[in-house]
Write a protein that binds this DNA or RNA. Structure first.
Length: 179
DNA sequence: CTATCGATTGTCT
DNA sequence: GACAATCGATAGA
């Protein structure tokens, strides 16, 4: 697992599509990711380590969790130092009822289709920042085969917005936005 | 379907 | 003091 993440974030982001991921038994299949590196003006790590982004400079295969717009939590997987992959959408498989309770919506497509939604559905908060993905409450299994991928521009950023660093599972109805 | 806008607060300059 | 790796509601085509 350590070796899988100790690589360029763009490479890892594509290969995470199709992986099975759970937090305390609640989760599903990763269908959308984005890559952020320290030479990328859109990345939190651009400009060096701060109190917030310190996990991005820690060991690979750990979680980087930050708060977005003052109210949403977003989950990343740390790759090489200063880089990470943002988990943007999951196909819900385990713990559907728990997700519905946490999210307050019934439609399965609205449970985990977006970084903030996904974090709320899986119970991800700042308490998990810096924790190893190889230990509880996390469970992660990389996809045995490479599924058909989509690639496009990242969502919701203003800097380096044209870079093709967003990846998705082709044909999935659980993407946060079309490619 | 697309477009726009307000909520809400930690973080960094 | 400005801004942000978002979301949900609402208005209009």
């Amino acid at each position: 697992m350590q070796a899988f993440f100790a690589r360029h974030a763009v490479e890892v982001a594509g290969e995470l599509i199709g992986a099975a991921f759970q937090v305390a038994g609640v989760g599903g299949v990763i269908v959308e990711t984005e890559a952020y590196t320290d030479d990328d003006a859109a990345s939190h790590s651009h400009g060096g380590m701060t109190q917030r982004n310190r996990a991005m400079f820690g060991p690979p295969a750990h979680a980087y969790v930050y708060r977005s717009y003052g109210l949403h939590w977003c989950l990343n997987f740390v790759c090489l130092p200063g880089s990470a992959v943002l988990i943007r959408a999951i196909m819900p498989v385990e713990g559907l009822e728990t997700m519905r309770l946490r999210r307050g919506v019934l439609d399965a497509r609205l449970l985990c289709s977006g970084p903030g939604r996904l974090s709320q559905a899986l119970g991800v908060t700042g308490a998990l920042d810096g924790l190893a993905l190889t230990q509880a409450p996390f469970s992660l299994a990389i996809a045995p085969t490479r599924p058909p991928l989509l690639c496009g521009r990242r969502i919701g950023i203003t800097k380096a917005a044209d870079l093709p660093r967003r990846f998705g599972l082709q044909g999935s109805p659980f993407l946060s936005k079309p490619f």
